[in-house]
Simulated assay, not measured.
Amino acid sequence: MKIQKEIIAFEKDTSFKLFSPSLKNCFFWHYHPEIELVYVEALNGIRHVGRDISGFTESDLLLIGSNVPHLNFDYGIQTECRQMVVQMRENFLQDIILPVPEFENIKNLLERSYLGLSFSGETKKIVVEKLHMIKDKSPFNSLMGLIEILHILAESNEVKELNKEDTRIKWFLNDKIRMGTIYDYIHENYDKKTNVNEIAKVVSLSTPAFCRYFKKQTNMTFTDFVNNYRINQAKIFLLKDYSVTEVCFQVGFESLSYFNKLFKRHTGETPSEFRKKYLRNTEVRN
């Protein structure tokens, strides 16, 4: 599936919409001029925003700027997944935020959202609570609640920029290769030895041309991307009743020591430490 422009419909006399999409196994690589705030809750998932491809565990809160290509956050998730999405009209920044001097911090936030912003910690917790609160309020009170949420995000230092450069749609319009085909190949073959020559042939490119294309699109080599995907799948299995050794071979690695080394490089902790921390956090919440 080539990149698509999503056409977003709004109810009359509203400046934003709040809803809970569910696409699951649909590959929706898309963009839209509307700025979007996304909260996704799942055991584990992959986010693809602009050129950034990374994983999240438990939940993620993201602000995605106008015309930044992104993949639906429930793609490939086999476990339970919940989402809340706020989409602001194309003129939201210009007509609602810019004319008000007191909204200067929100203006700056929305203007740099083209990088893709991921929020964590207490910021994420507070914003999610407030998103639930504005769901059933009147249009006016919901708008005031959204302004408060944007102010909280603008003041937060619990934020990570996902991209270091402009990745708005101009970077991707000439893409004629089906990224969905590549994702499907990896999803179907990550647990065995992947073959770059094979996927290059599937998308009708020579192997060198495919490698150049893939690196340009994702800022990663094909091998690095596959390993990143395997690590994210490993997190799901680690949180189920599987040993580290079982998980290692289940996601396609042939060496336990290499799996441990790569997992720590990606997450900052060993597979055993990751599972213990998650289970400890679950016990604390319960």
Rank of each mutant, 00 (worst) to 15 (best):
P99K: 10
S66T: 09
H132I: 14
C81H: 07
A154H: 01
K130Q: 14
P139W: 08
I177C: 06
G65W: 03
N91K: 13
P69H: 11
E161H: 05
V86Q: 00
I134K: 06
K176I: 13
D136E: 15
L115A: 06
D184V: 10
R178M: 13
L71H: 03
Q83R: 12
E122Y: 09
N174W: 10
N157L: 06
V128S: 09
I149Q: 00
K160V: 07
V86G: 01
K137F: 14
I96Q: 08
I97Y: 00
L63T: 01
K170V: 07
F56C: 03
S138I: 09
L93F: 02
L146F: 06
K135R: 13
I77L: 07
S59K: 13
Y75P: 01
K124F: 07
R168T: 09
P139H: 11
L62E: 06
R82D: 04
N91H: 13
G116P: 00
Q94K: 14
K125F: 15
I134V: 14
R112K: 15
E165W: 03
C81R: 07
T57C: 07
I152M: 05
S59W: 12
L93V: 08
F172L: 08
S66P: 04
S138T: 11
R178W: 08
S66H: 06
I106Q: 00
I182L: 10
L62A: 09
E165T: 08
T57N: 11
E80R: 12
I53W: 10
E104A: 14
V159G: 00
D74V: 06
Y114S: 02
K135F: 12
Q87F: 04
S54N: 13
N157P: 00
L98E: 13
I126C: 12
H70F: 05
Q83G: 01
F119V: 03
E111R: 11
T167I: 13
L63K: 05
E129L: 15
L115N: 01
Y114T: 01
R178Q: 15
N67R: 11
K176Y: 11
V68D: 03
S138V: 08
S156D: 01
T181V: 09
D52Y: 15
E165R: 10
G76M: 11
E102V: 02
N67H: 10
W171H: 11
V100I: 15
R168F: 06
L150D: 00
F73Q: 12
I147A: 03
L162A: 01
I64Q: 00
E111A: 05
N72F: 13
L110M: 08
L61D: 03
E90H: 05
M84L: 10
H151Y: 12
S118R: 10
H151W: 11
L61N: 02
M144V: 10
F119C: 02
N108V: 04
V85D: 01
S118T: 07
I77E: 05
K125V: 12
P101Y: 14
M144Y: 10
V100N: 15
I134A: 07
E90W: 07
Y114P: 00
I152A: 02
